[in-house]
Amino acid sequence: MAHIPDGVLATPILIGGAVVTVAAVTVAVHRLRSEQIPQAAVMAAAFFVASLISVPVGVSSVHLLLNGLMGLLLGWAAVPAILIALILQAVFFGYGGLLVMGVNAMNIVLPALVCALFLRGFLRHSNPKGAFVIGAIGGASAVAMTGLLLCAALAMSGNAFVPAAKILLATFIPLAFVEAVVTGATLSFIKRVAPELLFMREAAYGQV
């Protein structure tokens, strides 16, 4: 859904996206402690699998983006997780491209970080209903932000892309709606079933 192929965007946009992504990944990798790696990896794999689910919407179906949920659950660790998922999708499925990787990653990573910074704090003391609301806000706003970033990247690369970008933005509206419901349901489920897993600062050694 959010993969721009190579050959579309202008060079300054490509460079800008690459710089932002490299900076975000550098900070995220620096903050990722080695004890957290298995946890982040298993979550990244879970999100990769989840992005393969096709969800029916109206007459069509969509694949979930889940960057809001990743930001809410993983915080900064969402950045390398998203990057790895994008590399796997580009290299083995042929979605997106090589030089646009920076821009594609930036479009998904920045909204995830925004969700992590502004909404993660509320999650700690919320009840399951509150978690649904937080998830819905996070899921919808992350998808909306990704859509806007994607369209901005296209529009800044040439005026000829603007009509296509508008159509693209319209397709993000149903996705944002579905993503809100799914993200909300996921968070309230975790809050009900295993609230201790939401804020695992320390990986629990031995505790099996």
Binding site: V49, V55, L73, T186, I190, A194, L197, A204
Partner: peptide, 18 residues
């Protein structure tokens, strides 16, 4: 339901990661 499925997948993943 898909949200619950995803939640269950994540809970099991996190337990597995421990």
């Amino acid at each position: 339901s898909l949200g619950n499925l995803l939640g269950m997948l994540l809970v099991r993943s996190l337990e597995r990661s421990q």
